[in-house]
């Protein structure tokens, strides 16, 4: 599923008529794994490197080869970070500037060729990121309790915690697996994350809507 990056010198070409624009390499791998889990093969996850802002990236994606001819459905996935509302606003602003349809709320679809939808993670108006959703899904796993104890211990001893705590918690969990793949995306591709968890239901529905 990592075809986009297998051959790094090969530029990204739109090859499917349903696109899922994600934030980074980890998200690209995670959503590739989720598509595989759902047997969704008609959707192309895509991530755009570089320091440019989202406005420029969406605008450039829209003028890219094959977009106008081929793309019938576009999903945009972003982390809420501090605020779901302001992230959603920034995504819809970028969509509008690129001349695309603008959905009124997250997880709704509007327009035609392409229809457009936006998913802000972890969802339900919460701040945070994809990792928070994964932490929620990992809850029942006993191994996760072990790695969570590590961070509890650090707190108890008043030792400094990682700046990106959610990422660190997921990575600590993944470090318990037979092959050490500390990134979330590769962990998902390796089957180390419980993608069948009900926590991912809304995310899966969104993917299926983009792919429908």
């Amino acid at each position: 599923m990592d075809a986009q990056r297998v051959e790094t010198s090969r530029p990204i070409l739109i090859e499917k008529n349903r696109l899922l624009l994600v934030e980074g390499k980890d998200e690209f791998n995670f959503f590739s794994a989720l598509c595989r889990e759902l047997s969704v093969s008609n959707l192309q996850p895509i991530w755009l490197e570089g320091k440019s802002n989202l406005d420029d990236k969406v605008n450039t994606l829209v003028i890219s080869p094959e977009f106008a001819r081929r793309v019938v459905s576009l999903g945009v996935v972003r982390d809420a970070d501090e605020s779901e509302a302001s992230t959603f606003q920034s995504v819809t602003g970028a969509l509008k500037k690129a001349g695309l349809s603008v959905p009124p709320y997250p997880q709704t679809f509007v327009g035609d060729k392409p229809k457009v939808g936006v998913l802000i993670l972890p969802g339900n108006g919460r701040p945070g990121e994809l990792e928070d959703l994964c932490i929620e899904a990992l809850g029942p796993d006993p191994a996760f309790s072990c790695t969570e104890a590590l961070f509890s211990c650090l707190s108890r001893l008043a030792l400094p915690l990682p700046k990106e705590l959610s990422k660190a918690r997921v990575q600590a969990y993944l470090a318990t697996k037979p092959e050490v793949h500390i990134s979330l995306g590769l962990g998902a591709l390796k089957g180390y994350l419980p993608l069948n968890s009900p926590v991912f239901e809304a995310t899966k529905r969104f993917i299926q809507s983009v792919g429908a």
């Binding site: 530029p11 990204i12 755009l48 490197e49 570089g50 420029d56 605008n59 450039t60 994606l61």
Partner: peptide, 16 residues
């Protein structure tokens, strides 16, 4: 592609 869009496309490794 003006200078800006070309720059974004190249950085993002998008086909041009």
């Amino acid at each position: 592609y003006d200078e800006r869009t070309l720059s974004v496309a190249i950085d993002a490794n998008l086909e041009i």
